[in-house]
Design a protein around this nucleic acid. Structure first.
Length: 210
DNA sequence: GCGACAG
DNA sequence: ATCTTGTCGC
């Protein structure tokens, strides 16, 4: 697939994003998705499922793969999606929510990795990025403080302080969830700056490359 | 031409 | 993303 085709694919799928939460959504099994890279073109896609209440790990899947798409800002998903989808298919049961490492609607075409994974799986999803895709005013210093993440005059996500006095993370809607609920879910997953879901998926992916 | 640009 | 231990600070 060429970068041009990838852009067309994003524009075709973005209309399928549902930025609302089903009234009956109960999040018990939460999955963290992350991909680690080796020095060559090898990569490892990891998915770790936690019990949302206890934060205990209940399932892990890691899949080896190759980076066959270049890293291009805005097309990031095409690098990680194939292996992540394979990993998700190997879970014993679909999670209630997918927590992605990167942006959701906070994307130049409003279709970041979190939206893409959500639409392809049909599962609720959200994105937690370590750097912003847009502008924001620093949120208050206390845990839970937040401010709008704005891009092109639109509120595309939120800068969320997940820990007192630490740089905020950037949360945006992926699919089948609203921004308030997305931030609430992220906050309850955070013991340190990043959600436990992504921290554990990151650790699993790195271990796999050894 | 210059700056921006998830991981 | 990755290269990387100890260390300064609360």
């Amino acid at each position: 697939m060429t970068p041009e085709e990838a852009v067309a694919e994003q524009e075709r799928l973005r209309s399928l994003v549902v930025p609302r939460t089903d009234p009956g959504l109960v999040v018990r099994r939460v999955a963290g998705l992350d991909v680690s890279y080796a020095e060559d073109d090898r990569l490892a896609a990891a998915v770790v499922v936690l019990d949302a209440g206890s934060l205990e790990t209940v399932e892990e899947v890691v899949v080896p793969g190759r980076a066959d798409f270049p890293y291009v800002p805005g097309l990031f998903a095409f690098r990680e999606l194939p292996s992540l989808m394979t990993a998700l298919e190997r879970l014993s049961a679909p999670p209630d929510l997918l927590v992605c490492d990167g942006q959701g609607l906070a994307h130049p075409r409003r279709f970041g990795l979190a939206c893409h994974v959500g639409v392809l799986t049909g599962l609720p999803s959200l994105g937690v990025a370590k750097t912003p895709m847009g502008r924001f005013t620093p949120p208050g210093e206390h845990r839970g403080a937040h401010s709008d993440l704005v891009d092109d005059g639109e509120v595309v996500g939120r800068a969320l302080r997940t820990r007192e006095g630490v740089k905020p993370v950037f949360v945006s809607v992926g699919h089948l969830i609203d921004l308030d609920r997305a931030c609430a879910e992220v906050l309850r997953l955070c013991v340190t700056r990043l959600p436990e879901t992504t921290r554990r998926a990151d650790a699993l992916g790195r271990a796999q490359l050894r």
